[in-house]
């Protein structure tokens, strides 16, 4: 076990990890930040997505030790400072972008990464960017709609409520 130190959601944190400890395990079991989910554990589904130094990563496929000294952001760091939902989170609620909610932390983190890179994506660009995020409930349509809405675009023409 070694002691790791990193910034998570703006706070400096420390915790113990083995070489093999995955970042998602460190976040969930050492820091008790259980909003980041483990879906497939094979880097397919994206439920474990977090940001490391501003980049989206699958935290089930990165060792915690690789995040030593890094700036990590998880779903727990996505709400506004007053605790209200962020624009992205609110859009998912408003447009029914989740059903069971298991994939949603990853979807929200992916959306934040996309909109930072491309503030007004087309629907096709949204769908392409979601390639590494799997949802088994929604059929994606309302997720795409939520993301388009979060980018400030008119979604009234996107069907299927």
């Amino acid at each position: 076990m070694t002691e790791l130190s990193m910034t998570v959601n703006g706070k400096t944190v420390t915790g113990k990890a083995e070489g093999r400890t995955l970042l998602v395990t460190f976040l969930r079991e050492e820091l008790k930040l259980t909003g980041t989910h483990v879906g497939c554990d094979t880097s397919q589904c994206g439920a474990c997505q977090v940001h490391v130094n501003g980049q989206p990563v699958k935290s089930c496929t990165m060792f915690a030790a690789e995040a030593e000294g890094a700036d990590v952001r998880t779903i727990e760091g996505m709400a506004n400072a007053d605790g209200s939902l962020s624009v992205i989170q609110q859009a998912f609620q408003d447009h029914h972008g989740l059903q069971c909610g298991f994939c949603t932390p990853g979807m929200v983190m992916t959306t934040a990464a996309l909109l930072k890179e491309n503030p007004k994506p087309t629907e096709a660009e949204v769908r392409e960017y979601l390639e590494g995020n799997i949802c088994r409930c929604t059929g994606y349509h309302n997720i795409v709609k939520s993301i388009m809405a979060a980018s400030g675009q008119d979604v009234s023409a996107i069907a299927a409520e």
Binding site: S43, G46, Q49, V52, Q55, P56, V57, K58, T61, M62, T110, A113, L114, Y129, E131, G132, N133
Partner: peptide, 9 residues
Amino acid sequence: IGDPAVRSR
């Protein structure tokens, strides 16, 4: 290659 998160690593 892969998806955006894979490309980050």
